[in-house]
């Protein structure tokens, strides 16, 4: 697997982590309010979107590099 391939894996994992973080923050916020938790929730959503956009840009830019 080339650096390109593992980078895609990595970005997907990071997106997944944003989802987990978001769900966690949602749970905490529901249970006990707190502005910090709301911020985490929004932050993880933004992070997820940013990573998705970056990932798309990355795929486009490195179209010609092989996965192996």
């Amino acid at each position: 697997m080339s650096l390109k391939a593992i980078h895609i894996v990595f970005i997907s994992a990071a997106m997944l982590m944003c989802v987990v973080f978001g769900l966690w923050a949602l749970g905490e916020w529901r249970a006990a309010d707190g502005t910090a938790n709301l911020l985490y929730l929004i932050g993880s959503g933004v992070g997820f979107l940013a990573l998705a956009v970056y990932g798309w840009f990355f795929l486009k830019k490195l179209k010609n590099v092989s996965y192996l």
Partner: peptide
Amino acid sequence: IEVSGLFWHFVDLVWIFLFPILYLL
């Protein structure tokens, strides 16, 4: 560069798992 980058990605990937299990859960 590629080889060191592969290692670097692994290290970062480990952190992506470490962070939630140590900080959040």
